[in-house]
Every structure is written in structure tokens, then in C-alpha cells.
Amino acid sequence: MPAKALPVPTPETAPFWDGTKRHELRMQRCNDCAQFFFYPRPYCRHCFSANTEWRTLSGRGTLHTYVINHRPPPGWEEDAPYVIAIVELAEGPRLMTNIVGITDPTPDKLPIDAPVEVVWADVSDEITLPHFRLV
């Protein structure tokens, strides 16, 4: 079976992937406008400041929106149907992820804004993905 796509970190994103490998959800926060942003980049998405720092987040959030994919790409045949979601973290930023731990996912099992928490998927020796589950 073809392998699932894995990320290859770049210099500005390495702190995120180093964090996930340690099972820590780390993102950048802007010290000027006091907001988190994601994905990682040298300048704040909100105010373009370079005065940013990495912080560890709670790993808690809400299910902002999602789809349930029934037509899997190569490598995902065993997973379908599966949930691709946008999670809004308690600290504000959002990320794309999978909602795991639901057998035969259907919309009634996945209310919008439902609370979620991070679970760690060690998908290779180098890469750990942040997945989420309903709490």
C-alpha cells in the first residue's frame, strides 16, 4: 500500500515538529499583538511583527468545522470514512487535523464546536502528527 504523505520540516517550522515529537503542541505567539498564529512563519500573521516566541499550548480546543471523507487517496483506504477537521485551539489559533477515535463517523456524532483534545500519532521515527479526539 502506498505510504501516507509525511511532512518534511523546514527551518521555520522545525520547532513545531520538534515539539510534536516530544508530544508537546507548540506554536508561535506575537509579543506585540498578543495573539497566537499558525502555521509557523517568521512574522506574525496578524500584525507582521518579528517579535514572536514559541509557547506550549494546552492541546484543548473545539471542533470548528470538518468533512468526512469517503473517497480516500492512496494509502488511506483502511481509514475511510475518516474526519478531516479544522480545530480551534483554546489559545486561538486553528489547524487542520484528523478527528480520531470515532467508529463510522457521521455528522450526528460530530457537533460543531464540540470540545476536543490532542492525541499524538507517532507516524514515523521522525514525525509525530497532532490528531484530536472528542472529550
Binding site: P7, Y39, R71
Partner: peptide, 28 residues
């Protein structure tokens, strides 16, 4: 490209073309 923002922050979650991504906001 697995180094691109999409390759790092979307592709690992199993999107498969526009039907899985363009439609992301409809549930909300």
C-alpha cells in the same frame, strides 16, 4: 511538495482534492 506549507500542514491529514478541502466550511 512535502516541505511546502500545504505539504506540512494539510497533506498529512488525508485530503484528496477539492472535494475534501473546498467543502471544509460547509458544516459550519
Amino acid at each position: 511538495d512535502p516541505q511546502s506549507p500545504m505539504g506540512q500542514f494539510e497533506a498529512p491529514y488525508g485530503p484528496f482534492g477539492p472535494s475534501t478541502m473546498f467543502t471544509m466550511g460547509v458544516a459550519r
